[in-house]
Design a protein around this nucleic acid. Sequence first.
DNA 1: TAGATTGTTAATCGATTAACAATC
DNA 2: TAGATTGTTAATCGATTAACAATC
Lengths: 211, 211
Amino acid sequence: MDHLPGKTIERLSAYRRVLLNYSTKGKSYIFSHELAGLLHITAVQVRRDVMLIGYTGLQRKGYYVMELIARIGEVLDSRDGQKVAVVGFGYLGKAITGYFVGKRSKLDVVASFDINTKKIDTKIKGVKCFHINSLKTVIRKKKITIAILTVPTDVAVEVTKNLVKAGIKGILNFTTVPLNVPPGVYLEEYDMITSVEKVAFFVKKYDKAEK
Amino acid sequence: MDHLPGKTIERLSAYRRVLLNYSTKGKSYIFSHELAGLLHITAVQVRRDVMLIGYTGLQRKGYYVMELIARIGEVLDSRDGQKVAVVGFGYLGKAITGYFVGKRSKLDVVASFDINTKKIDTKIKGVKCFHINSLKTVIRKKKITIAILTVPTDVAVEVTKNLVKAGIKGILNFTTVPLNVPPGVYLEEYDMITSVEKVAFFVKKYDKAEK
DNA sequence: TAGATTGTTAATCGATTAACAATC
DNA sequence: TAGATTGTTAATCGATTAACAATC
């Protein structure tokens, strides 16, 4: 349980998402093959991941949903929670903020930032927008550890430098710019275009295979 | 070159993104270790991927950037291009549309859809919004093969059914709802919350390791 | 030439899956 | 009990990396 692979972490997050939804349907237990089916993976993989986090199900009833959710929370979440900032308050920043607020009790979006003065002090789901110039102050004051980067490409590198200076510990980069961060700062990158291109590639491939 | 792994496809997309940017800087050649450095991967991996798509560099100059971009295009793109629809024209749908238009010549966002009548006929970067009721008609008329799904969770399953009925061949699902599609339709899922939770997990882990 | 680089096979590593004992 | 399910090791599979020949 000490060295959980990144892939397992991603699946644990997916399990929790599905389980939270499943629990609202009044079901208390779930079999490994049911959970697997919902996510298009195998039951063995579910059982192995569950084993890795040291949770044990009941042999004829499956997993007790609330307990498994709680156990996943112990693994993924920090005890005191973590504060998140959305940097860049355009459509994407607003989408993420709206999407995120209230979804996970231990992850709190507490601020957003933009350079456009018209956006300052506007709110989405109670999250206020600050001017990018006050990045450092606000991050320190609010003890923000995670930044979600949705700024235009031309300022991505500069803003990243400032985030690091301000003491940010993790960055989720949605820009198309490859970033560099010092050791001790965790960087995760996601490029939508890559996802769409992957879909396009496999569509093309299927199409060819049919002919 | 016949069976390119999904991971290689993702990297090819990333290579092209980086190379397109690199080429605007007036540089004609790039070494495998330079390309690797920009993406935080190894030079061997770059060379192996390039080998897999049958491109050959020059031993002391590296890869000819324009040629490599072209070769990646031959692998990833369809000859005649593919049409894309953004389904759900909220913040996320608008963000993706704005982000995407004009970025890849072979992938064309040609329509968006929403249920809110106020949004109908509005445009982002020339992409017009249609009512979700005309999904089938527009998809068929415009020969759209790929859908990017950004609708609210409660309608995701229903809209997906309609997309499949309309003849969509690939779906990129940004909702948190696990979807089912019939064989022959390619499904790619992305959940932002999972990405943020992964960042949070590793931040927590680093933090603990420091103590 | 020497040094640096590519291309490619073989070895390693890590992740998934198969197999099966345990047990409800 | 029989059947179904979990937990876990061992085997397999796939992806990455090491090693090195070729060559500019």
